[in-house]
């Protein structure tokens, strides 16, 4: 039991890390990774939704009739997304303004529905929470990593939280403006996918 729990948790961190291995949920990956802070905010919001929707769907898996399961999953996921949206507005309004429309769009993030359908609806609540947590943390790390590359090259800083950079390039560094614009997201993601495949080949 403990072994499979650890297995379900860690697979999200490497073997099935969402954007790079499963290549799922690319919309927020491309859109919000202008900085590390945005990436972490989006990742934490998605993790919250993943964990709680996995838990609830797994608890209800024997009650939900299979013909309306997708509708039930969407109701559950949408409820948690709306809770996240309200809580973010109340306590981290500046981050909410930056992530804006992409918070409600977590509802249609295929990672969340994918885990509900492929995992939580077939496994016990404990395993489903471990799966949601692992995938969520993996997603957060991927967003933060891509955000770090883009922010470092495009702006010359790394900002973890709260707006003050923890690392700054020297004054002689000329930022690649291009990296924090939309095309930079595709280039950055492509290079990271390439790197992941190179490492994974061994």
């Amino acid at each position: 039991m403990a072994q499979s729990l650890a297995k379900e948790f860690t697979k999200g961190l490497w073997a099935e890390i969402p954007p790079f291995r499963l290549v799922l949920g690319l919309c927020p990956v491309l859109a919000v990774t202008k900085s590390v802070e945005n990436g972490i905010g989006m990742g934490v919001a998605t993790t919250f939704v993943l964990v709680f929707s996995n838990l609830l769907i797994s608890l209800l898996r024997n009650v939900i009739p299979s013909k309306v399961r997708i509708a039930c999953f969407i109701v559950i996921i949408a409820t948690f997304v709306t809770i996240v949206e309200l809580v973010m507005q109340a306590y981290t309004y500046e981050l909410f303004l930056k992530l804006g429309i992409f918070i409600p769009l977590i509802v249609v993030n295929c990672i969340v529905l994918g885990r509900a359908e492929a995992f939580a609806s077939k496994n016990s609540p404990v395993l489903s929470v471990a799966d949601g947590l692992g995938i969520g943390i993996g997603f957060t790390l991927s967003l933060a990593a891509l955000g770090a590359v883009r922010e470092l090259l495009g702006n010359g800083t790394i900002t973890i939280w709260g707006g003050t950079p923890v690392f700054e390039m020297g004054a002689n560094f000329l930022p690649f403006q291009f990296m924090i614009e939309a095309p930079g997201a595709f280039v950055g993601l492509g290079l990271m996918l390439c790197l992941m495949n190179l490492i994974g080949k061994k």
């Binding site: 009650v63 939900i64 009739p65 013909k67 309306v68 509708a71 039930c72 109701v75 559950i76 949408a78 409820t79 709306t82 809770i83 309200l86 809580v87």
Partner: peptide, 22 residues
């Protein structure tokens, strides 16, 4: 009947929860 009951209960509970959070 079970489809109707499950969906109704689920949406009602979600609505109530969201109203409370709001």
């Amino acid at each position: 009947i079970s489809m109707i009951v499950v969906l109704t209960v689920l949406t009602a509970v979600s609505g109530g929860l969201l109203a409370a959070v709001k």
